[in-house]
């Protein structure tokens, strides 16, 4: 299958790549661009470990084609911290022990950031429903919900 040239923006950087028409964005990120923060847990959109945003919309990058990135703004976990400064969600995830093995963590952080951009003061239930597409097998989710809420409180200037 002949490859197609794609021009896009990833975490603010201009990026060009070649991919085949049937190649998922996740494979492009991981195999062609060395951005391995997004993980493949299922390849069928059931686990959320590959979550990224495309033009601000939260997606499973395993269900988006690489060619759909043409002209888009893509944000991945690699773009979340600003230099040495972690995003409040990243810091609270570490401090609240919201990760054990950590393989679902990039996807959950991207999804949680997307939630807080839409709703700065979610209820616990809203956090649980928003993150229902992100499987975590280690934590039982409790500490993830706590970390999202404490990061949200900090981002609202309450701490």
């Amino acid at each position: 299958m002949k490859s197609i040239q794609v021009s896009t923006t990833i975490n603010g950087d201009p990026v060009e790549f070649l991919c085949t028409p049937d190649e998922p964005l996740l494979d492009v990120l991981r195999n062609r661009l060395g951005l391995t923060g997004a993980k493949e847990g299922c390849g069928t959109g059931d686990c959320g470990a590959c979550s990224v945003t495309v033009n601000g919309r939260l997606v499973c990058s395993c269900l988006v084609l690489g060619v759909e990135a043409e002209g888009a703004q893509i944000e991945t976990i690699e773009g979340m911290a600003q230099g040495e400064t972690l995003h409040p969600l990243q810091r609270h995830f570490i401090e609240k022990a919201a990760l054990q093995c950590g393989v679902c963590t990039p996807g959950i952080l991207v999804a949680a950031k997307s939630l807080l951009e839409k709703n700065a003061s979610p209820t616990d239930e809203e956090v649980r429903y928003w993150l229902a597409g992100n499987l975590c097998r280690c934590t039982g989710y409790d500490k993830i919900i706590e970390a999202v809420q404490s990061a949200a409180a900090e981002m609202r200037g309450e701490v």
């Binding site: 923060g37 976990i77 911290a81 990243q90 810091r91 401090e95 950590g102 963590t105 952080l109």
Partner: peptide, 21 residues
Amino acid sequence: TTPNRPDGVDKVTGKAQYGAD
């Protein structure tokens, strides 16, 4: 006590290398 884990930053920034990485 409950200090932060040493692999925490790598795991929240996507740097940690898992099997497929």
